[in-house]
Design a protein around this nucleic acid. Structure first.
Lengths: 112, 112
DNA sequence: AATCGTTATGTCTGTGCAAATATAACGATT
DNA sequence: AATCGTTATATTTGCACAGACATAACGATT
């Protein structure tokens, strides 16, 4: 019976998007699968889209977020750097804090 | 040289969007112009889109947000109810508070 | 040097959504 | 009853963007 407040946050670097919910999902999937193509499959998005997202993330970040290798054993793969792992952890925390904050703020509207 | 954090918030009522930034802009324009069609023009959106937005807002809200009159002197018009005025004021406040909150949170990422 | 599964890109196609267009309905005023 | 500018809605058109498809590049392993 009552209103809900929702939010979407993202982090930009010089007008390019660095991180949003979709990109964080992708990074987590890479962490779990060890490969960009497997991550794309698990998220049900095309490999191309996944690659474009990851490329954009790495180009926007101050330090590398993933290390991608092509060729070699298994054909290659992708894995998160320590910086990448820290980023998604921090993003999740900020997101949770934001939800809690907004839920409190919503009372202002419920009271009307 | 540093990251920026951005956000978009919106309020839902039973899975329908009640208020977002675009809808608030529209309501403000209605307040200034006294008419939905003039508001649409001032925002450079089609009348149809403006009407759909306003219709959706009024259907989602607990109480009427605008009073629309058709026909009569001047052909009709639209104006905000007291509830509508309170809503956009509260939304703006929440939005500002959210920005300030997130800016502080961003420090967690800058520090990485 | 042949194989393999991946990363790294370009190209093409279709479709969903936005915008434009059209028009009905309305009621105070004259 | 004729006019007027608006609200209210349906229909058509256009275009950006996502997805499918294709293929090159790569290097460890055999």
């Amino acid at each position: 019976m009552s209103y809900k407040i929702k939010s979407r946050i993202w982090i930009e670097s010089e007008n390019n998007v660095l991180l949003g919910e979709g990109r964080v999902h992708l990074l987590k999937a890479i962490q779990e699968t060890g490969s960009l193509s497997k991550a794309a499959k698990s998220l049900n998005i095309s490999y191309k889209k996944a690659w474009q997202l990851l490329d954009s993330v790495n180009k926007s970040a101050k330090k590398p977020v993933t290390i991608n290798s092509i060729g070699g054993k298994g054909g290659g793969g992708a894995e998160l750097t320590e910086y990448g792992k820290s980023l998604i952890k921090a993003f999740d925390e900020i997101n949770k804090n934001c939800w809690a904050f907004l839920d409190k703020q919503l009372e202002k509207i419920e009271a009307l």
